[in-house]
Amino acid sequence: MLILTESLTAVGSVINAQLSALGRTVRFGGSAALYAARGVINRRIYPRHDLVVQIDYTGARSTPIMILTGFLVGMTLVAQTTPTLGRYGPQELVAGVVGVSVLRTLGPVLAAIIFAGRVGAGFTAELGTMKVGEEVQALETMGIDPIGYLVAPRFFAAVIMLPCLTICFDAAALIGGFIIGVYNFNIPPEDYLDVTKQFVYISNFTFGVFKSAVFAVIITVVCCYKGFTVQGSAMEVGRATMQAIVVCLVSIIFTDFVLALFYNILARYDIVQ
């Protein structure tokens, strides 16, 4: 009985701690979103130059890796799916399978994972180092809110740029798939395009882009929060970065599942196709 009570207490305290952390993270994200929006009008919250720097860092510099990865993913999908599909029916159907899976799930999720690894990890490490180096506290003592000054431009840039990067990823994957389908499996180009048009709806694309905006919020909030809560030495920065990426990956996949269910509900009521 005593063991059961102790176990329940331990589980309860873990759940309590996790929910408290979730609450603090959500509040942090809310502040960041509010500052990002207010910063559009009030130039004092964060300098415009910082926003441009973040857009360059999160977006422009991530574009080549997104295109390359998207291209490879599209080619791999077609290369692995076409022979199997050919055994059961016309292999042109691969165009539809690849189109739908890339636009609805693979594109947004893989782009978000690459973004978390490249940009999110950078956010945690950068802000964590600033926290350890007393830079965050220095901003506070100057009467400057560090969430507004440091997190808001990153938040703004990520929410704008990850959907753009996802579009690049999707496009590269579709082109990659098309090239392998046409040149390796001899699918006529017009057939490949026809099947793509038949299977892929605009809502697949728009919902994928919407998902990527949600992922951008999750990545920025988790990674910046982890950076802001680093305490102690520089070693803790590494630990926080690792934790941020793990939380991001699990959150992205879980959110993707929830949004997939949500999409199915929308499809049931003919809101999407």
Binding site: G133, E135, T141, G143
Partner: peptide, 28 residues
Amino acid sequence: EARRKFGVLFQSSALLNGLTVAENVALP
């Protein structure tokens, strides 16, 4: 408002590394 009445020199100086010395001083 109260914080504008004082300045703090931190042990590590706590200058923002992404800004020049002049930009650091200009920030507040």
